[in-house]
């Protein structure tokens, strides 16, 4: 399913070192691939990306504003110059809590946020709480799937500083591929909001997240696709605006869970030691 999660055989290489620190006596045998890599000159070795690792040298990113999510994303944030697909069971439930903090930073740097076909009218006083200034928000309304695609393509091609957010429930994979190729020349992030039903469809977006409402106003998140090992567990983000956090009862805010530390063990599936080492 995930095009980037190949090379399972090499996996233990990166993980092999971690437990070795804790228990040198029980160090697993080093696979042949590791020794081959060790003999490479460092310039070359540093350019080899192992399937087990998150791609750290990906292009420019914008921090998401959620520390727990940043740790799981290649490069540590929303990718720029690529599509990011956010799939939700229902549109209009958790968009701003997901992307709002990141967009706030873009706007602070002088960016503009283009909204293409949002499910509801945006409410600027609420967006202001994420740092989105009213003069930096543009709402482009259009019915008709083809027309929205056209707008999205024009907006991405124009490469206006900032981000493009488009709600494209009916886009087909080949249309997305076209957008993705346009997005490669865009200098900011491009978010596509789509229904959760399309998660089985192929997608050219290098980052796909499934976003669902979690307990107590939080967000449950699954990373369906990323440039790195497949992420199988679920993330829970608190993701409340500070104003909401202040007024909501303690039990709600507290029930928003602590994000587990990063672990790449899920791909190996067996090595629970790695997770423990990661938590330390």
């Amino acid at each position: 399913m995930n095009a980037f999660s190949m090379g399972q055989g090499q996996l233990s290489l990166s993980d092999a070192q971690a437990p070795a620190d804790d228990a040198p006596a029980a160090a697993p045998p080093v696979p042949v691939a590791a020794t081959a890599l060790a003999t490479l000159p460092w310039q070359l070795a540093s350019t080899v990306w192992r399937g087990s690792e998150l791609l750290q040298r990906s292009g420019v990113v914008v921090p998401t504003g959620h520390a727990g999510l940043d740790r799981e994303l290649p490069g540590g944030g929303w990718p720029c110059g690529a599509l990011t697909e956010l799939l939700q069971p229902h549109a209009g439930v958790s968009e701003w809590r997901m992307v709002g903090p990141g967009l706030g930073r873009l706007v602070a740097e002088g960016g503009t946020v283009l909204l293409i076909g949002p499910p509801q009218p945006p409410h600027l006083p609420g967006l202001r709480q994420y740092g989105l200034l009213p003069e930096r928000v543009v709402w482009i309304e259009s019915d008709g799937a083809d027309r929205r695609l056209w707008i999205a393509e024009e907006a991405i091609k124009a490469n206006v500083q900032g981000a493009v957010l488009a709600w494209l429930p009916k886009a087909r994979p080949e249309q997305l591929r076209r957008l993705q190729s346009c997005a490669q020349r865009h200098s900011g992030p491009v978010f596509l909001f789509r229904p959760a039903l399309v998660q089985a469809e192929a997608s050219p977006a290098p980052l796909r997240l499934l976003v669902q409402p979690g307990t107590g106003g939080g967000i449950r998140l699954r990373i369906l696709k990323r440039r790195g090992p497949q992420h199988e567990s679920e993330l829970e983000l608190a993701a409340l605006s500070s104003a909401l956090e202040r007024v909501l009862p303690r039990r709600v805010v507290r029930s928003a869970p602590v994000v587990p530390a990063l672990h790449h063990g899920s791909l190996v599936g067996a090595d629970s030691q790695v997770v423990v080492a990661g938590l330390d």
Binding site: G92, E95, W96, G100, P118, P119, Q120, P121, P122, H123, P125, G126, L127, R128, Q129, Y130, L133, P134, E135, S241, A243, L244, R246, V247
Partner: peptide
């Protein structure tokens, strides 16, 4: 773009979508 200073950040929570 309004030349007057924009209103500050609301202290109390405000929704981010509003129904028409």
């Amino acid at each position: 773009p309004s030349t007057t200073a924009t209103t500050g950040v609301p202290v109390l929570p405000q929704p981010s979508w509003i129904l028409p």
